[in-house]
Simulated scan of single mutants.
Amino acid sequence: MSFVNEFISDEDVEKYRIEEIDEKFVSNGTRARDWTIDRDRDVYLRNVAIGGGAEPELRNRMSWTLYWHGDLIVLRLDLISGGEDADGAGWAQWKLMWLNGSSGLPLHLKEQRTQILADLKDALTAYRSFGIYSREWPSYQVILEVDEGCVI
């Protein structure tokens, strides 16, 4: 199976403790009830807070949770740019600013860094521009950069 965008079932809200996670994102929290999930890999990506303000550098700051094989990782991803090519293909450029505040991955996940980043990119590609609410493109590409100050 691969990543799909879907609404979160009541069972999954309970299983993954979504309401408990939401309590941590009071300011600009989305309370989103949709996610991008790969059940076979036991990985999901969920937007939990959106930056506020009129300036793009604030508005494009987003907090996400990446559930990866039993571990919850909190990310800040900034949307740098995105759009559509002349052939109709969609794309987005994201920059990973930090993981778990600025403390990076827990020690037991450090060796999995490459796979975690690959799964994050796969999830963002499936998420497209707006998860379950995304329009269809013939193809979609994600450019994922890691900020030079990001501790992984």
Rank of each mutant, 00 (worst) to 15 (best):
R31F: 11
G104W: 00
E136Q: 09
R113M: 11
W98V: 07
T114W: 04
A126G: 08
S134W: 00
T36S: 10
Q112D: 12
D85C: 10
H108D: 09
D42F: 03
G82Q: 08
D71Q: 08
Y133C: 05
E84M: 13
G90P: 04
I132N: 04
I132K: 05
I73L: 15
N28S: 15
Y67P: 01
L120V: 06
L144E: 03
V48K: 01
W68M: 01
I21C: 08
D87L: 10
D42G: 07
C150G: 01
D122V: 02
V74M: 06
S103F: 11
G52E: 06
Q141G: 12
S81K: 09
W137F: 15
G131K: 02
L105M: 14
F25L: 09
F130G: 12
N60A: 06
G51L: 08
I132T: 11
L117W: 05
I37N: 01
K95R: 13
W91Y: 14
L117K: 01
Y140L: 14
V26F: 09
D71C: 11
S27Q: 10
G82N: 07
G83H: 11
G104P: 10
S63F: 09
K24W: 09
K110P: 04
D22Y: 12
T65Y: 10
R76S: 05
G29C: 04
A86F: 06
R31W: 08
G83S: 08
Y44Q: 03
A49W: 02
N47S: 14
W64F: 15
W64E: 01
S129M: 04
